Simulated assay, not measured.
Amino acid sequence: MHYMDNISVTVTTRVIAATTRVYENAGPVTILFILGVLGNAAALGVVCCNAKTHKWRPFQRYVLALVISDGGGILASYPFAEYRYISKFTYTFPKPLCEYLGFVFMFTLMSSAMIVCCMSFDRFFATFYPFLYNSPSKGLRTNIILGIVWCLSGILSSLHLYGLGTSKNIYPGSWCFLNFIEVESEHPHATENRVYSYVYAITGLTVVTLTIVANAAVAIYFIRNRFFRSRPNSGKRDVQIIIFVLVVAFIFGSLWAPLMINILQHASGAISGEDVTELILLRMGVSHSVLDPWIYILLRKEILVLILRAVEIVTNQKLRIVQNLTGNDDGQDQRASFNQPRVQIE
């Protein structure tokens, strides 16, 4: 009996040790940091250099805000995580630093999610309510919305600083977040941690749901009008918008939602403890901030045309989508091309 117990303990210890060796390395952290900084810097350059062309319409303002949130969050947090790995985990975050990192991680993820949601509804209103959308004050309206988004994200991400829950240094000690781990009754502040976890996760999942609904509505609208109403000349931007909307919705939902679901599972008691799962889910969430600028850069019309023309060369076939993208740009709203009053939009 004792022999079997020894075997069981030995096996468990080896599994944990193997897991530690696999995940306690600086490779993923370094890659995310480099790609995040380069991508957001490149997107910032593209947006600013093309200011004379886009004249800072609402969509470009949202892109700029997304770059600021994503790039700023990565720069403000990942150097500390990198140092933790470089020190071979001998350096431990002091409590004030952990509270700071918890705020930065939560703020970056939530503000990025809300800005993507706002971008989706920007396309939604531009498509379904073009006259309302194209009011003279749309630039000011966008700035106000972004201010509200940052304020809400800041408040939601700093509640642990005011006594609602706590922050926690989570496995492998390279990141801090709201304490959704210690929600059992034997832990101090368990009730506050549980409430905070529910508030943050439910808000995050609500943002995901609204983003998917808005994106799906826009995509269905264009697909229906292009392929089921025999109106192929609906404007060359239709293809770009459909591709951008679907890619953003898929990546955002698939990378952000799992972390929110995991937090809800901890808060409800369905799961407990911490291991590499939470680390992977956080990296998935941060990957969204890393991928956002690359999506914007790669899905620009010029890049899409280059990629599709390369596909034409390889397949030796002409693609109709290239003609749609390179056709004459009437600069009109998407709905206007369906024999409706024409209004100028970005």
Rank of each mutant, 00 (worst) to 15 (best):
E346W: 13
F125G: 00
A257Q: 04
R14D: 07
V343W: 14
Y91P: 01
E302R: 13
G72A: 11
L164G: 01
K55G: 00
C176Y: 11
H187E: 12
F338V: 15
I243Q: 07
Q60H: 09
R309H: 15
T277R: 11
W56Q: 05
P28S: 06
K55R: 13
L140P: 02
L164H: 01
F80W: 14
H266A: 04
W175C: 06
M4P: 00
R61D: 02
I16R: 13
L281E: 06
K138I: 10
V311M: 13
I170R: 10
V116W: 00
E278L: 12
P79F: 09
S287M: 11
I297G: 10
I7E: 06
I295V: 14
M4I: 13
A257E: 04
P232Q: 12
S197K: 02
Y100M: 06
F121R: 05
A126D: 06
N225F: 15
R141A: 02
H160A: 09
R309V: 11
S77Q: 11
M260V: 01
G253V: 04
A17P: 00
Q60A: 06
N324E: 15
Y83Q: 06
G139R: 08
M1V: 12
P136W: 08
F125N: 02
H189I: 01
V104I: 13
I31N: 00
F227R: 14
L97I: 09
I243S: 08
V46F: 12
G204C: 03
M260D: 03
L161Q: 10
P130Y: 02
P172D: 05
I68V: 15
